[in-house]
């Protein structure tokens, strides 16, 4: 999975090619990337992403200002209508805004990857003897910081407006961990878009098209019992609904429910499909 063409057995026939001769001449050559090397390369590239993030703080807009704005805006607009008052709406809303902000942040992962791939530095990554997954997994790892930032600000805004999560500190931390894992796994969908689309603009287009249905056709902002049957059916299979429900259960009740299990399972399935697809499509660009 981590390399493209050399999925052959480790043993080299002496006459097969020049490798064994080069090794005999004293070149320190490795036939493939080891797991340890892959991890270290991923961390090196995550470090690069973090440095870049720090220098371009304005690009953190989507995980700073947006969650604050959405929390305040939705709370005062929908609060009275849905839950009677703002304060009773917050336990429903905060996990919803967390999911929305995290998904928006995931989308930026795909767009930025595409922009990066069009630059010369990706040629360098391609020509280096590194795992093909590292240039994708590095930024994905660094983006955990973005999701964490969005989660902290959303919860802080909620607390300031009177949100008192019943799950306590542990429940909130567990909810935050679930939303970060969800962000990491769903980001592979957008990463895959990044590797197949023709431009960053196209990635943005595709991403918007799936981002809106995924977040708004879920239970993120409203209780689902008022929805027409066909829509409710979609909302119930939408993984975002399970993530939102799971985060609600953890934060509000401190309970590890079946919804948490479904959310984790859904995320694992998404990552299991889109991670290999992304690596394959990235490696095929060669």
């Amino acid at each position: 999975m981590s390399t493209t063409a050399d999925s052959r057995p480790d043993t080299l026939a002496p006459t097969e090619d020049g490798l064994s001769r080069l090794v005999a001449e004293g070149h320190d050559l490795r036939p493939r990337v080891t797991f340890a090397e892959t991890v270290s390369q991923t961390f090196a590239l995550a470090g690069r992403s973090v440095t870049t993030m720090r220098r371009n703080a304005d690009q953190l807009f989507d995980v700073t200002f947006q969650p604050l704005l959405f929390t305040a805006m939705f709370a005062y607009i929908f609060g009275g209508a849905i839950s009677g008052d703002v304060r009773s709406y917050l336990p429903l809303l905060i996990p919803g805004v967390l999911a929305q902000s995290t998904l928006t942040a995931c989308m930026a992962t795909g767009v930025q990857l595409r922009e990066d791939m069009e630059k010369g530095v990706f040629d360098r990554f391609t020509s280096l003897p590194i795992a093909r997954i590292a240039p994708l997994a590095g930024p994905a790892l660094a983006d955990l910081l973005r999701y964490a930032l969005a989660a902290v600000l959303t919860v802080a805004a909620g607390l300031a407006m009177g949100f008192r999560p019943g799950g306590g500190v542990l429940g909130v931390l567990a909810g935050g961990a679930l939303i970060m894992f969800a962000g990491w796994s769903l980001a592979w969908i957008f990463t895959w878009f990044g590797t197949v689309a023709s431009s960053a603009r196209a990635v943005q287009g595709y991403s918007m098209m799936i981002l809106f249905p995924l977040t708004f056709l879920s239970n993120a902002y409203v209780p689902t019992d008022t929805l027409p049957g066909w829509l409710r059916a979609f909302v119930h299979v939408n993984p975002v609904s399970h993530i939102v429900s799971g985060v609600r259960d953890l934060m509000n009740d401190g309970a590890v429910t079946a919804q948490v299990g479904w959310a984790v399972l859904g995320c694992v399935v998404v990552a299991a499909i889109f991670l290999p697809l992304s690596v394959r499509s990235y490696a095929r660009h060669l």
């Binding site: 390399t3 493209t4 050399d6 036939p31 990337v33 003897p129």
Partner: peptide, 8 residues
């Protein structure tokens, strides 16, 4: 066949 070795 051996891009990884060539890259080294």
């Amino acid at each position: 066949r051996r891009p990884h070795v060539v890259r080294q």
